[in-house]
Design a binder for these strands. Structure first.
Lengths: 224, 224
DNA sequence: TCAAAAGTGTTCCTGTTACACCCATGA
DNA sequence: TCATGGGTGTAACAGGAACACTTTTGA
């Protein structure tokens, strides 16, 4: 066989990461802008090829850090996308992950292979490369449904926060408004928060009580 | 590089299928018995290597038919399993699928590569090859949760069935008993069944009315 | 004193649970 | 006539949804 022949299988495995945050009251997702053809200038989820001895989750974390600067993220597996035509450059199946993270104190930076990295509101996404429109739809749907039976929303918040801030996260992700009194009733019934005694002052209105989580870990709940 | 160097990637992609049924009032799963070392005599889900131009779902169907004789199954993607140590023979990541099917009128047969194929009650599984114990746990959990918000249970029933038969399916999968009156109330509230006017006669008790589905397709419901 | 967001209870309605007896059949 | 599983209704309760006003602060 000539040395130019490809490996017996041309099938490759990639990982992609759909990283969400809530910022300015909107659900946003982290995208990088491609530099090389044929996707020049298009946006995509951070992603890359799986290496031999790493898990897909490790690969997603490695690639996420390299391409965006984001680290220390709790990723959940979303789904595996395997349309043979999803990448014009060859057969690549992609194991996609997703996460919800805080965007404050976050320094984004990418490599010279990409033009840019930034948050995009999910309601105004640019055209995406590969089958990433599809991945985006599935990820958003999954994030919403996860919101209803876990405390995943809380991973987006800083240590101290007001109940209104918590509610804003839910409203942004679910894309609908919630009743303030009912929301507070439910949250307080869960008894997972503790009052810090401190208040958010400075605004031209009554200061909000600040809360924190009794423990900061994933919990299955029943909210909506 | 010397020409003896292996292909750039030794990573392979497999698919596995966890096929469930309810039989004798028990949730059962379809397993094949391995013949070749190092898994001689151990049981495993039907599975095999993904080919270049097929989707993972197509592969799962192809392999399921070849290894068990089962066909015409509506498969759902379960999860991708990627522990680098999950297969002692090399790095293989597996995209697992699952389904719930009727077991009546089903002729199981496998190939000479396997010793046997049969249904196993999920409560009394034999030792499984690879990481299939893990896949089994995840699949059963997913099947249960799917049961609570879809009509997936119905895919296990023949054209005509009694309400008690339907209830038995739910009880077998959820592994708990349900109240007969409440169960019937919920089912009838969904208005997805129609009375065929026929009855199940022959038993030494009052004959049950037989029902069928108005339409036989997947529906999102809210049962439990 | 005004604007802005924080904070707080009650009523109604719906859906869930628990529970016991009669009915129709074949042996 | 008996054993077996089929079939039916109601009451109590819990959780969810709708809804409006007072409080506290900074400007």
């Amino acid at each position: 066989m000539p040395k130019t022949s490809p490996s017996p299988s041309t099938l490759r495995v990639a990982v992609d990461a759909a990283i969400f945050t809530v910022h300015d009251g909107e659900l946003q997702v982290l995208l990088i802008q491609m530099r090389k053809k044929p996707f020049e200038d298009q946006w995509a989820f951070p992603g890359g090829i799986l290496e031999d001895q790493e898990t897909t989750e490790q690969a997603a974390k490695r690639i996420l850090l390299a391409q965006t600067g984001v680290q220390n993220v709790y990723l959940e597996q979303l789904m595996t996308f395997d349309d043979p035509a999803r990448d014009v450059l060859g057969r690549v199946i992609s194991v996609a992950y997703y996460a919800l993270i805080p965007s404050h104190d976050l320094q984004l930076h990418t490599t010279e292979r990409y033009k840019d990295v930034r948050w995009w509101p999910v309601k105004k996404l640019p055209p995406l490369a590969y089958d990433h429109e599809h991945i985006a739809k599935v990820a958003i749907q999954r994030l919403r449904s996860k919101l209803e039976y876990t405390n995943i929303a809380w991973s987006v918040l800083p240590k101290e926060f007001s109940l209104t801030e918590l509610q804003t996260i839910y409203e942004a992700i679910l894309d609908r408004s919630l009743d303030k009194r009912n929301f507070r009733k439910k949250i307080q019934a869960l008894a997972l928060l503790k009052d810090t005694g401190r208040r958010r002052t400075g605004a031209t209105n009554r200061p909000a009580l600040l809360y924190e989580f009794k423990q900061r870990k994933p919990v299955i709940i029943n909210l909506f």
